[in-house]
């Protein structure tokens, strides 16, 4: 259809468009300072010419706050140079801080690395724990083990005071130092008891070697030795673990003071036993869970009576 309208119509459309667009275009061109002389004349004939010019002229009166580039540059250069100095300082500071942290860290590391690890129990308390090579240790009441984690693989060595049951992981020789003797083993299970001049080692598995003074004793499973009144006695047992692991203390022909001492440790009490011969031998046991029953177990066979007063237990003859 449009083709049929012909060139004439198109021209009219063009002129019309030109006429309408002219004003807008003129203004736009003027705004871009791109008017030709002819266009400028046309622009000047616009109704709003005066107001455009006034707006434009007035806009030129808008004054950004004075800005002295040189001065500003000086200021920023001063600022930057100052900051560079202080930055260097702070770099040094940061470096020092890092160094301090390292020194402190190393110090702490060496302090702890060289420090012995200590495990101890209070009266009436038993503790299970593992040494670095997964050797299992059960510590009976009021006992203490000290060892050093550093170089553990090559130097398996613990210091024991009191009583402990060891399940030693296989590896190099394992030493238990006690004030009375050294117990040396490879992988095995054994119990070491060292109290008040009494020293007892019982082997439950493997092979245990005990050095006492100049002598060395080799213990196969089920065998043990005890040091009582400076005499070495052999022990035979059918048990596979020491009785205290099962919260029971079993005594076979042991001096009475050892029995009382163990009871004191298991129940955290003080036993006063005047006029009683503590060197009498006792055979029997007591449990760790009931003080009444435990006291009865150890007093009745000896023909004694007891009285409990808070944590003071008094034993007397009937």
């Amino acid at each position: 259809m449009k083709n049929k309208v012909g060139i004439f119509d198109f021209k009219v459309l063009y002129i019309y468009r030109n006429f309408v667009m002219k004003e807008k275009d003129l203004i736009r061109k003027w705004l871009d300072n791109a008017l030709t002389d002819e266009e400028l004349k046309a622009f000047k004939k616009l109704d709003a010419y005066d107001s455009y010019i006034k707006i434009s002229d007035t806009s030129k009166k808008i004054l950004p706050p004075s800005y002295d580039v040189t001065e500003e540059l000086n200021e920023i250069q001063q600022h930057i140079s100052q900051r560079t100095v202080s930055k260097n300082k702070s770099y040094l500071g940061i470096l020092l801080r890092i160094a301090a942290v390292f020194v402190l860290g190393l110090g702490v590391y060496f302090f702890f690395a060289n420090q012995d690890t200590q495990v101890n129990t209070l009266a009436g308390q038993k503790v299970n724990f593992e040494l670095p090579d997964q050797t299992k240790v059960q510590l009976n009441a009021l006992s203490e083990i000290v060892y050093n984690k550093k170089g553990w693989e090559n130097n398996r060595e613990v210091h024991l005071e009191g009583e402990a049951y060891f399940k030693v992981a296989k590896g190099k020789k394992f030493d238990v130092h006690t004030p009375l003797g050294v117990v040396t083993v490879l992988g095995t299970e054994f119990n070491v008891n060292q109290r008040e001049g009494y020293f007892e080692v019982i082997c439950y598995e493997g092979l245990v070697s005990v050095s006492y003074q100049q002598n060395t004793y080799r213990l196969p499973p089920g065998k043990g030795i005890e040091l009582l009144s400076k005499k070495i006695n052999e022990i035979n047992t059918q048990d596979t673990t020491p009785s205290w692991i099962e919260n029971k203390s079993i005594f076979k022909s042991k001096p009475y003071y050892l029995v009382l001492g163990e009871l004191e440790r298991q129940y955290d009490v003080v036993i006063s036993s005047k006029n009683i011969d503590q060197h009498l031998l006792f055979t029997g046991n007591f449990v760790h869970s009931d003080i009444q029953m435990a006291l009865e177990s150890i007093t009745i066979p000896m023909g004694l009576k007891y009285e409990i007063n808070e944590n003071l237990v008094t034993l007397y003859k009937q």
Binding site: L31, D32, N33, S59, K60, I62
Partner: peptide, 8 residues
């Protein structure tokens, strides 16, 4: 455009 006289 007006104050700084910048081109479009």
């Amino acid at each position: 455009n007006r104050v700084e006289g910048k081109k479009h």
